[in-house]
C-alpha cells in the first residue's frame, strides 16, 4: 500500500473539471485509490462521491493506493495533484 498527503493549493478547490480529470487519471490504474478529506472518503474513480467530498482550497487530503500498479499510480497521482490542484 502507498499513501501520501497533499494540501490543495488551487484557489477554487476540487471543482467539476479537476474532479473529472482526477477520475480519468485514477481510472488509468488497476489499483484501488481512495481519497479522504477529513472524515469523508471516496474512491477516486467515482466522480459523484469524489465531488461529494467538497474538497476546498487549503484542505489536506489523504490519498491511499493499493494494488498491483501502486508504484506507478503513486507517482502519477502525486504529479497530478501537484500540477492540477
Amino acid at each position: 500500500m502507498k499513501e501520501f498527503d497533499y494540501v490543495i493549493a488551487d484557489p477554487v478547490g476540487v471543482h467539476a473539471r479537476p474532479a473529472g480529470l482526477l477520475v480519468k487519471k485514477a481510472s488509468e490504474f488497476k489499483s484501488e485509490i481512495i481519497i479522504s478529506n477529513g472524515e469523508k472518503s471516496a474512491e477516486a474513480k467515482k466522480l459523484i462521491s469524489l465531488m461529494g467530498l467538497g474538497i476546498r482550497n487549503g484542505d489536506k487530503i489523504h490519498c491511499r493506493i493499493e494494488g498491483e500498479d501502486e508504484e506507478d499510480a503513486l507517482l502519477e497521482m502525486q504529479n497530478f495533484f501537484r500540477e492540477n490542484l
Binding site: 473539471r17 474532479a19 473529472g20 466522480l47 459523484i48
Partner: peptide, 11 residues
C-alpha cells in the same frame, strides 16, 4: 463531458 462521466458513475 462531466455529465457523461456522471452517467458512467458506478454509485
Amino acid at each position: 463531458d462531466i455529465h457523461k462521466m456522471m452517467l458512467e458513475d458506478e454509485d
